[in-house]
């Protein structure tokens, strides 16, 4: 699968983006955003803040990102965040459930995480308002500032999912190799129904 946009290389990196290429290939998101340096300048800090360390735990963030990416069938993001999920300590069953290969209800048992997953599913795939029972359950386990962060993270992930899928961004060969050695399918685009 060939990417539908060209990537800026280190020797063509705009002045304002050179530092991002100094340590080697910054990956297809940054290398494509660098086509528009003024957009890169604001998008990268935004994505970094939304996806990086904050008051929402890393585990919950990966639940959001991997689950949303699977719902949106974003191959690039599923692969990238399967790796992240492994690195931050999610177990294989949890990862496979988030990827849609298992029913999340069979794997996740904590009420807070069930509420979170239902919120993710509703926000990522729904239209219009989220059902009261889902919103009430979610709000019962998370404070307002966490509700804000999680919901923004779902939205940002949706944006990245569509961007990466539409432009057919590639995962690195090293990433694909690592996932395949761990037994994960890397070419998947279909994910199962919401549990």
């Amino acid at each position: 699968m060939t990417a539908r946009v060209s990537f800026i290389t280190a020797n063509q990196a705009p002045v304002s983006a050179r530092h991002l290429f100094a340590g080697g290939d910054p990956g297809p998101l940054v290398s494509s955003w660098a086509q528009v340096p003024e957009m890169l300048d604001v998008t990268l800090p935004f994505v970094g803040m939304i996806m990086g360390a904050s008051s929402v735990s890393v585990r919950h963030k990966e639940l959001v990102i991997l689950r949303t990416s699977a719902l949106m069938q974003c191959r690039f993001c599923i692969n990238a965040h399967t790796e992240v999920a492994v690195d931050v300590g999610l177990n294989e069953l949890e990862i496979r459930a988030l990827r849609g290969e298992l029913a999340v209800g069979d794997v996740f048992a904590m009420p807070s995480e069930i509420a979170l997953l239902r919120w993710i599913d509703a926000v990522a795939t729904g239209r219009g308002a989220v059902a009261d029972d889902i919103a009430t359950a979610f709000a019962g386990h998370f404070q307002d500032h966490e509700v804000v962060e999680v919901t923004m993270l779902i939205g940002a992930t949706l944006m990245l999912n569509r961007y990466a899928s539409a432009l057919q961004l590639p995962n690195s060969a090293e990433s694909i190799d690592r996932l395949q050695q761990a037994g994960y399918e890397t070419a998947l685009t279909n994910q199962g129904a919401i549990a």
């Binding site: 990196a13 705009p14 002045v15 304002s16 528009v36 340096p37 957009m39």
Partner: peptide
């Protein structure tokens, strides 16, 4: 060349 690109805007 984009190495001295300031903005697309």
């Amino acid at each position: 060349d984009t190495d001295l690109l300031v903005s697309r805007t």
